[in-house]
Structure formats: C-alpha cells, structure tokens
Write a protein that binds this DNA or RNA. Structure first.
Length: 224
DNA sequence: TCATTAAGCGTTG
DNA sequence: CAACGCTTAATGA
C-alpha cells in the first residue's frame, strides 16, 4: 500500500480531489517494481489498471510489422498513463519497457472508473492530460519522416518536460545519454552529438547524467 | 566508398 | 560505480 505522502508526491491529480476520494484512490493502488530492461507489458496484454510512474523511466513504444522499434513517448516519475485503455477496457496498444529499475503504481479499474464517475476534479485532470497526449501523438506523424537526430532528441526532451504531464517536474532531470538514446531511437554517439548541438544552440545544458532545459518552447519546435 | 552503429575499454567525476 | 569519450570492426546505404 502506498503512503498518502508518497502518492501525493507522484500524482498531480491527487492534489485537487476530495479527501475521501483520495483515500479511496489510495486503497485501490498497488505498487510493483521492475528491473532495468524488462517489459512491464506487451502490446496486446490485458493490463486493465491505470498506471503511474513512482520512480525510474519507462519507454512506451511498439514494434512495427517490419520489426522496427518505434518509441511513442518516454515516461518519468510523476507520469500517469493508460487511461484510454482502462476506459475502453481494451488491450494495451503499446509495449512498456523499464529503461532503468522502475517502480510503478497500478490503480485498479474499478477504482479508476469510480473516480471517473464521481470526481469532478479527477475528470478535469483527465481531460487536460488526454488533450496534451493527443497533441503529442499528432506531432509523431511528422516526427518519423521529417526530423533529423537533433530534432528528434529535442522533441523527446520537450515531452519529458511537458508542464501539463509533469506539473512539478522542474527544469532538469536525471537521465543518462544512453537512456535518452533508447527513448528516441538513437545510438549513444548520435545522442551525444545531438545533445552538443542543442547545447550549442543554448536550448539546454548538459551535465554528467543530468539535463536542464533552457528553452522549452524552442525545444518543442526545433528543426521544423 | 562512406557513414553509422554496437561493443569494448579506458577515463572521469 | 556509473556515465562518458574514444577506438574499432561490422554493417549497410
């Protein structure tokens, strides 16, 4: 069982809902850990829980028919996802891979649906989040065919700093260049070069195992 | 041929 | 000890 403090610290949505709803949500959540480089679920699995990242880093992606791995988004601590799947009671549309040791929170479907039916604040959060995701997925259309390595990296980094999805995420994250590469489908070398490039353009600053965004707006639109 | 990558290894913080 | 830079051999456009 997750403690109230911990749940608050990793879920923006829990701040605005009633105390009794919060407690109900907390009761409906279980914690699970996954080691680095393991699948949390495969595309097609029936994982009917709403999922939050407590710690670690998750890649949300899919393997195309040609066998090519495609990343749709990276998810870091504080991110919640899978609401579409849970609402529709469908199978997962994407693979989930833990890029480092990761702890996730699973809210069971019954609890999620109860909040959906009963909490206005929760719904407000959901709409905002769904809308933001929609924007990301639309951006993916151009992403695949039009963008070079630095632009891909810039997009992915901007997504990791999305102020709606990570309202209290701050302007820097702890992430290695290797992990970034895995997220954007770039090699370590290409990631390194692209990071330099973005740093030279003063869009971000790079430190050992750490990354700080300097201009989120330009990162989001870089190279278009 | 030329560019890019994965893998290994030495260096660094 | 993990992240990074560099070298190298393999790969493929």
């Amino acid at each position: 069982m997750i403690t109230p403090e911990r749940l608050r610290s990793i879920s923006f949505w829990s701040h605005d809902i009633d105390q009794s709803d919060f407690e109900r949500a907390r009761q409906g959540i279980t914690l699970h850990t996954y080691p680095k480089n393991t699948y949390i679920c495969h595309r097609g699995d029936q994982l009917d829980s709403w999922t939050g990242v407590v710690s670690g880093l998750i890649k949300l992606g899919t393997t195309s028919i040609s066998g090519k791995l495609v990343t749709m988004a990276g998810l870091r601590a504080g991110g919640w996802f899978g609401e579409g799947t849970v609402l529709k009671g469908e199978a997962r549309m994407y693979d989930l891979i833990a890029l480092r040791d990761t702890e996730i929170a699973l809210m069971n479907r019954t609890t999620f649906l109860w909040l959906f039916e009963n909490s206005v604040a929760f719904n407000r959060f959901l709409v905002r989040q769904l809308n933001e995701r929609l924007g990301q997925f639309i951006a993916l259309v151009e992403y695949d065919r039009m963008l070079d390595a630095p632009a891909r990296l810039a997009r992915n980094i901007a997504w990791l700093f999305n102020p709606v999805l990570y309202p209290e995420g701050g302007l820097s994250i702890t992430i290695s260049q290797e992990e970034l590469g895995l997220l954007c489908g770039l090699s370590r070398q290409a990631t390194n070069k692209s990071l330099q490039c973005l740093q030279d353009a003063s869009l971000l600053s790079v430190e050992q195992g750490k990354l700080t965004a300097l201009d989120l707006d330009r990162l989001k639109n870089y190279g278009e």
